[in-house]
Design a binder for these strands. Sequence first.
RNA 1: CGGGGUGUGGCGCAGCCCGGUAGCGCACCUGCUUUGGGAGCAGGGGGCCGCCGGUUCAAAUCCGGCCACCCCGACCA
Length: 559
Amino acid sequence: MRLAKSLVPTLREDPADAEALSHKLMLRAGLVRQLAAGIYVYLPIGLRVMEKIDAIIREEMNAIGGQEISMPVLQPADIWQKSGRWEGIPEMFKLQDRYGRDMVLGMTHEEVIAWLAAREIRSYRDLPQIWYQIQTKERDEARPRSGVLRTREFVMKDSYTLDPDLAALERSYAAHEGAYRRIFERCGLRFYVAQSDTGMMGGLGAHEFLAPCAAGEDEIAICAGCGYAANVEIARGVPAPPGFPPASREEVATPNARTIAEVSALLKVDPRLMLKSLLYVGRRTGPVLVLVRGDHALHERKLARALGGDEVRQHLGAPAGSVGPVGAHVPVLADEHLRGGVYVTGANREGFHLRGVTPGRDFEPRFVDLHTVAAGEACVECGKPLAVEKVIEVGNIFKLGTKYSDALGAMFLDEGGKEQPIIMGSYGIGPARIAAAAVEQCADADGIVWPASIAPFHVHIVVVSLRDAAQVAAAEEVYAGCRAAGLDALLDDRDERPGVKFKDADLLGMPVRVTVGNALAKEGVVEIKERRAPRAEHRVARDRVIDTIRGLEVFRASR
RNA sequence: CGGGGUGUGGCGCAGCCCGGUAGCGCACCUGCUUUGGGAGCAGGGGGCCGCCGGUUCAAAUCCGGCCACCCCGACCA
């Protein structure tokens, strides 16, 4: 591709609307433009990145026996009514056709898969199957954010497995895990595989593939000792117990002290020796008092799970500040690590707290894991300290079970001639998130540094002066040579000053830059640099360029 | 949905408090000079000041309503 006439609108300054590093750089490098909140146009360079990622995904999906299909974005309501997801998903875009029939813009494709399977799969001899697509999804996200990381319209690679029994599902699941590891490795990402929440829809187990980066919106607890890794939604950790000084049970006045910080300062008590009491109201379960240690944060997902998937809301009633579990006449849930300690907590009397309170003795709570894991807590598997990192979810794998096959009648006849529901799994990857995560993980102060495998071009050729016919001829020769050798090449043939071209080359981040400039006339050489190692430079004669590029280490790893 | 912020040529911003008919840098066009890390000089084009309404002789500026976008939180099959 030649830059002079191409749509590669690079920006000198950071756009005002962008906060995340990947968002800024993807806008500045001219990869994408935003049409509306969470809705993006992909420009030529951005599209090429997506295509490179898609190609890797296709290779690995095909390698485990995946068959690519394409399902409609526009879907009839009735399959969603059958599966029970027509109601209650605020992210779903709904519309009507001209005859008033209810339609859906697909946010995922389990229903269509189950519909298809119900028609085409009859016997255990037809199983297993892996069907996948790389298709647009539409979700009315509550809050699109961070550029391309969370959008309302996005492309997803989604695959679905159909199996006759749980053992076969395990094999399909494991095949996906392997394929996913290879995909993310080949895309040059650092990532973790973590156990994840199966969500409110049940399911038999799930893992997430998470790429650490500053713009990540999830957090993961990881153990360097044993490799334990789990989303903080479910991650468990063992906090170091504080030393409990002897304390007899007594009421103390705490006028005007309401928060943990205020009471702890007033009574000169470590926050770790206090109980944080939070009143929650469950839609089905009604009010519950929830206790975590003073320095801990409640994880509401854990609470909701403990209440059987109920929807919970924090109740900010008037007496907050002196609330406590002793004598409370609502059910009490306490974090499991509070058992046996001696704490300070609200006395249920305005302006007073209680010292010397022991959960399990002075009141009888249900002990469950409720607190959000913090860095430094001990790993539940091996006892080593846990680290907590921000991550972006780039993929997930999910053992679905028979929810959709039951609902849509996707059955098969087993060896004994008995009708059984097909057992499904579903598996997603967000290619745009791979691209953004790669930008986040690899960029430097000058711009993007693409992993070679997903770089829009392998080689960026800069002609320093268009007035020098020898330079132009040499650059054209390198350009043609790269293409003949199967290297994607971008030729900067713009009539711009050298500084502009160098800055743009850094910003765009192709793995290799070939500069054709004064050195050609003086020494008969062109310069070859790796973007990630700007100080190392190869100066080679024109006829050595292709071989030199091919020998670079950047391309070894990814081929 | 709650909290905070921002809307002024293509981009980044000033002007708004204190009302008088819009300015700076970059980009763009023309000419000359320049050509290895975002050039210089000269000339030039381009703005419903987010939208609607109100106050006023007069509104980018004051008041009311609405919309859009960004950030934090809730939410995230």
